[in-house]
Simulated assay, not measured.
Amino acid sequence: MTQNDSDSDFLPLKVISVGRDGKRRFDKRDRQRLIEACLQPGVSVAGMALRARVNANLLHRWICEHEKTYRGEGATQGSGDAAAFVPVVEIACADPQP
C-alpha cells in the first residue's frame, strides 16, 4: 500500500507530553490512525514505526492491544485461538461385562 500525503499527514506522531520518567504521550486520534494504517494489507509495521518515529516494538504492542479490544478479549485472557492442553483421563470399568 502506498500512502499519499493526505493518508500520512498525522506522521510523525504528535507528542502531547513527556513525563518525568521520559515517556512520551501521543495524540490518541493520531495513534489510532497509525494503528489502522498498520492493519492494511501489505503495510510494514517496522516501516510505519520509522515514519511515525516510535519504537517498532511499542507500535506492535499498540496493535495487539487494539486487536484484543476489538475482539472482546480485553477482559478474558487465555481465550481465543490459543492452543491448550487438556488432560485425558482413562476410566476403567470396575466390573467388566463378559
Results as ranks from 00 to 15, higher is better:
Thr69Ser: 13
Arg25Gln: 11
Cys38Trp: 01
Leu34Glu: 02
Leu59Met: 06
Ala52Gly: 11
Lys28Thr: 14
Val89Met: 05
Met1Phe: 11
His60Gln: 14
Asn4Trp: 10
Glu90Val: 09
Pro41Ile: 12
Met48Asp: 03
Cys38Met: 02
Met1Arg: 13
Lys14Asn: 10
Glu73Asn: 11
Ala52Cys: 08
Ala83Cys: 01
Met1Ile: 12
Gly78Glu: 01
Gln32Phe: 08
Arg25Pro: 00
Gln97Trp: 01
Asp81Asn: 13
Asp7Gln: 15
Pro87Cys: 01
Arg53Ser: 15
Ile91Asn: 00
Ile35Asn: 03
Glu73Trp: 10
Val88Glu: 04
Gly74Ala: 13
Arg71Ile: 03
Arg31Cys: 05
Gly22Leu: 03
Phe26Arg: 04
Ala82Tyr: 03
Val54Thr: 12
Lys28Asn: 12
His60Tyr: 09
Val89Thr: 10
His66Gln: 07
Asp7Cys: 04
Val54Lys: 07
Ala56Leu: 00
Gly22Arg: 09
Ala56Lys: 15
His66Trp: 15
Ser79Ile: 10
Gly72His: 06
Phe26Ile: 05
Val45Pro: 02
Gly42Cys: 11
Ala83Pro: 00
Val15Gln: 07
Arg51Trp: 02
Val43Gly: 02
Pro98Gly: 02
Glu36Gly: 00
Ser44Asn: 11
Ser44Trp: 06
Ser17Arg: 15
Ser8Val: 13
Ile91Cys: 02
Asp95Ala: 08
Gly74Asp: 08
Ile16Asn: 12
Asp30Val: 00
Arg53Asp: 15
Lys14Glu: 14
Trp62Asn: 07
Pro41Cys: 12
Ser17His: 12
Lys23His: 10
Leu50Tyr: 04
